[in-house]
Structure formats: C-alpha cells, structure tokens
Nucleic acid binder design. Structure first.
Lengths: 258, 258
DNA sequence: TTCGATGTTCGATATTATCGAATGTTATTC
DNA sequence: GAATAACATTCGATAATATCGAACATCGAA
C-alpha cells in the first residue's frame, strides 16, 4: 500500500480549498455535489471546521465561507519567511526607480506563489494578488527559478502537461530547457506575452544562504512600456535588486548557482 | 449526545494551532506529547497535512512548520472583509492627524482580532501584530464592541473567568457592565493600563449596514502621551474615523445602535 | 561500533466516519 | 395562509477506517 493519508482530513482540506477557486460562499449542497460526498458527510466536516473557526456560516443564507482561524494561521506563516521583510524595502526602491509593478514570489510545490507586490504609478496595471499561484513554465519568475534548479528537479517540473495560455506560451520541453540555459548564463528571465497577451515581465532569481533558489522578483508591465531602450534599465534594476535580497538572505557567491 | 464533531479533523486543527503559540517548528514527538496522542497517530495526521500543504517538513531536522496552503487560504480570507480596504485610508489619515498607532480589529468568537495596523512616527511604540487576538474585557476595542452588543450576548461574553493583566484590569462583571453603559452613551471606550502598564487606548465601534457592531478602531499610545489636553482630540478623531468607516460599510443611523 | 533517541511503517482492533432515510426549517407559490 | 419545494440538519446501522502498540529504520553522539 502506498501512503495512508487520513481520509477525513483530506476531505476537510478539499472543502477548504474549494473556496480558493471563485466562490466566496458555498452551501452544503454545493460542496457535497462538487466533492461527490453525501450531504450528511459534508455537513459533519463543515460543522467541525466551523467549530474550530476554519469556516463560518452566514446566518442569512446558511452558506459557509472561510473563517478567521485561517487568517490567523496565514499570518503566522507570513512571519516565517523573513524574505518578505528583507525584500520589502528593496522592492520599494525598485518600484520608485522603474515606475512599474514589482512582484516577489517564492517557489512552492512546482508553482510560484506571490508573496509581496507593489504597484507602480501607472493607471494601466497588472492585475495580481498576493497569495495567488502561477505556473512555472510561462512566467518570468517561474523560469528564473526553474533555470537555477538542479537538473533532476528541472526534469520533474517539466514532466507533466503544460498549459497553454497564449500563442506565445512555450510547452515544448526541449525548447524550454534551451531557454533555461541562456537564463542561467544571463541571470535573468523574460516572459514575453507567454501567460497573458500584452504582458511582459523581467525576472531574476533569489538565493538563500545555501545557494538554493528560493524565489524571484519581477518587474511586470504592459509590453509597450518595456521597449528595446528601457529593457536594459529594467534588467539591470531587477538583477541588482534580486542580488541585494539574496545577499541579505546570507547568499555569498554571486556567480556559482548550482 | 451533543454535537458529533469529526475527531481526526479536530485533531488536525489541534496540531495546526499548536504552531500559533510560540514555537515555529515542532517535532512529531513534541506534538504527540503536547496533545497526548500516540506518535503514530500524530504522524498520520502530520503526513496528511503535509501532503496537502498545511505543514511542511524541514529536511534538516525533520521538524515541521506551517505550510504555504495556510498562507494562501489566509489571504483569501483577507479578501473577504472589505472592511480592511475601506478602513485603510481612513486609518492612514487618522495616524497622520494623531501621530499615534491606530488599530483596526474585528470581533470574532468572543475576542478581538487585529486586522490592520499603522504605526505612528514615535520611536516608543506599541508592539502589536496583525492576526493576533486580544481579550474583550480589558481592551479599548473590546469594550467598545461589547458595549454595543445585545444584552444577551454581553452576559454570555462576561460569563467566563476573566484574566487579570495589570492592577487596573477589571474583572468584576457588574463594574464592567456599568462602564459599558457609559461607553454606549459616549460612543467611545478607554483602556487605561488595563491590559498593559503604561498603555492607554481610545477606541470606537464600527457598525455594518444592519447596525451590528462588527469591529472597532483604536488609537494606542504610551499613557504619558495621551494627557488630559490631548485626550479630547484623540477621542474626537477616533470617533469620527470609526463613523466614517461605518458609513462606508453602509451603516445609516449614527444614533441608534441596538 | 554501539547506543539512544526519534521518525516511520505495519497489522489487528475497536472506534468512528459514513451513508441514506427521516426530520426540521425556511422561502416561495398559488 | 396552506402547500410545496429546497434546502439544512439529525439519526442510527453498518462497514470502513483511524487508532494504538510494537516493530523497524534512520540518524547522531559517545
């Protein structure tokens, strides 16, 4: 037998995570349908989660939504990565310099997750949300991270099906691996409309004290605002900022990555 | 039989919440001792939680810490209360006016929970943390909220044992209820060293569109900085800001509260 | 190398989560 | 305002499953 996970905990997680996609409020019926479980089973799970503050019921329509306990726990997690604290001032400076939105992401379970963001002054902005995830094969930050993973992990991460978002999304494994090589040489990655038309990003990796890639920062802007001329400035700024963060994290060598 | 909660979910919650108090990393053994469960039981729970991203194991010492999924869910919860969004600019203005730290809290399960805070410019600051909880009987925000609860809820909330923090902490139910009455009349609450010596707070309640108290804001400062003279300014500022937030939440009547 | 301490797996067992049916509850329709 | 409908919630029997203790694995320290 493989691993023996505890069914009801897995199901409780299923319930909670339903709320991550789209709907803010869900009824017992909706949940039981989506999960293919009986109403009474779902009811038991929900009432337990509510009892502990992981869900809360809206007394008006009897529907449920995520509870405060998750907010509490989530904040505790934030405290765990000092990377946020370290990066914040650097990001702020970079935004002021480039006048564009800057993101900080961490690598987690084959995806990137947005930890911090600071919008630039332009009205035309990238929509993004702290706490959200994004794929690794078609984002600047994802590729910046991927490029500095060990060969074995790279293989693994590129093994599954890759989703296509735009006509520019690369899904060919070999093609991507080739690009990763130049990213590794140059120290930055570019996403040119690979996840969303009109969106261009410049990203650079962040290393921890052991020299492991743990995240990345990126400057994201409408393609038209990152022209030939500005590109150099942006690349330089992003790389410098990323290096500064790595250094603060205790990273010693700026050259040897793997 | 009372309610039939699902044991393993309750236990999973127990595990997660151990991480809220003090320790960032816990071993299987520590958890099993703290919860009085067998190592193997705890192991099963932990592995399930890890599988789903609610815990993650440190490969160096095999200990566990809270996982990214909680960060994700926590952020989703943040999006749920627009009160944060609405209150932020009002709070910012108030901090600039009073030059003191301002907190926004919500009422949740018999306690207040810090949703938002903005520090004033002084070096001598109140230590506080978004996501933390505080008791209701000895904080400005707590009393401001309590005062506008229905009689029945008040009774319930004051029923249990009340913890003593300083020599000024009130734990006598009748005494507190008397104070609540004047808070209700005046529209603001004061905490004068009731939870921590040297700390003084002025708080005012926030109501939702139905006229229900849902939270409060407070100005917190070292007692010496809120003297007789400044007190009036602070009270006025806090009340105004709270009213403004309530109004934005759709609250109509500034007079009738219950 | 041995020992000790802790993490992990395994199998038998009794506990417990599960389902379907029955019962409440609330809103809606005529 | 009764009747219906659409849920949420409770209940009880049953089979599934979480639990525990013991055995095993792994890692560091002596």
């Amino acid at each position: 037998m493989t691993e023996r996970f505890i069914q009801s905990i897995v199901r409780a997680a299923d319930v909670l995570e339903l709320f991550l996609s789209a709907h803010q409020e869900l009824s017992v019926k909706e949940i039981s349908e989506k999960l293919g479980l009986s109403k009474s089973t779902v009811h038991g799970i929900i009432k337990t989660l509510e009892f502990r503050g992981y869900l809360q019921q809206n007394p008006d329509d009897l529907k449920y939504r995520l509870g405060m306990k998750l907010f509490e726990l989530g904040n505790r997690v934030s405290q765990q990565f000092d990377i946020g604290k370290i990066a914040r001032p650097v990001i702020k400076e970079l935004v002021e310099k480039l006048k564009e939105t800057v993101h900080l992401v961490m690598f987690e379970r084959g995806e990137v997750i947005y930890i911090e963001k600071l919008d630039g002054p332009h009205a035309l902005r990238i929509y993004s949300q702290v706490g959200k995830r994004a794929p690794i094969h078609c984002t600047g930050v994802g590729k910046a991270i991927l490029a500095f993973q060990a060969e074995k992990e790279q293989e693994q991460l590129l093994a599954g099906e890759m989703e296509t978002f735009t006509e520019y999304t690369m899904t060919n494994k070999e093609e991507i691996k080739k690009q990763l090589e130049s990213i590794r040489k140059q120290g930055y990655a570019i996403d040119d409309e690979e996840i969303e038309l009109g969106l261009k990003c410049v990203a650079a990796p962040i290393f921890d004290h052991k020299g492991k890639v743990i995240g990345a920062i990126s400057c994201a802007a409408p393609k038209m605002r990152i022209n030939e001329q500005r590109l150099k400035t942006v690349i330089k700024g992003v790389k410098q900022a990323a290096n500064q963060i790595s250094q603060s994290m205790g990273y010693k060598d700026v050259l040897v990555h793997i």
